[in-house]
Write a protein that binds this DNA or RNA. Sequence first.
DNA 1: AACTCGGGGCA
DNA 2: TGCCCAGAGTT
Length: 221
Amino acid sequence: MTKAMRVVRSLETVYPDARCELNFESAYELLIATMLSAQSTDKRVNIVTKELFKEYNTAEKMVTLSEQELIEWIRTIGFFNTKAKHILQTSHILLQKYDGQVPKSREELVTLPGVGRKTANVVLSNAFQIPAFAVDTHVGRVSRRLGLTKSEDPNVVEKDVTSKLPKYLYSKAHHLMIFHGRRCCKAQRPLCDECVVLQECSYYKESQKSKNKKVRRKDSK
DNA sequence: AACTCGGGGCA
DNA sequence: TGCCCAGAGTT
């Protein structure tokens, strides 16, 4: 049993319902919702997509919207200008190259405008049940504090953590670390008193060691 | 590696 | 007011 597996087992007891919090009913809906969620919150994305997907829940329907019309739909979400453009471009490509379907490989997904490493992995694991470990700011920070990686590069973090996990735990580990990062292992003022993986945490050990010195700010930005 | 895009929520 | 939010693209 690796350290990463022990972490998953412990976090599971605290966040038994950890899961993707975006509302979706198809791979296309999840793809669009995930694109919208970048640097935003799932709660706000769900408010927008609840209405948007009633009319525009496929690539074919989405491209009937003009860029300005789509911007009006998503105006309450940050980066709406770029996101509207990317959503329409991606929808056109889906129609031209993939018969309107969402491709099921990371290589194909990341070629779509507005789809990066993280979005691709979220779609693969949550829409297609393909093992994938998506690294966002929370997952990266939690992984580094626990000592599962030392890298700031999300690609390296992904490699380091997945090398210590069986594939069937990739998605679960991803969701558990996000929940933990948001509710306990926060960027500022982490709630170490309430943490169930404190024994595994190199960040905590360091902060104890240098209690009278300046606490490391590397992961507190 | 370091920018830029960006409105809304919250202290 | 200032800081943060389940990132991606460009230089």
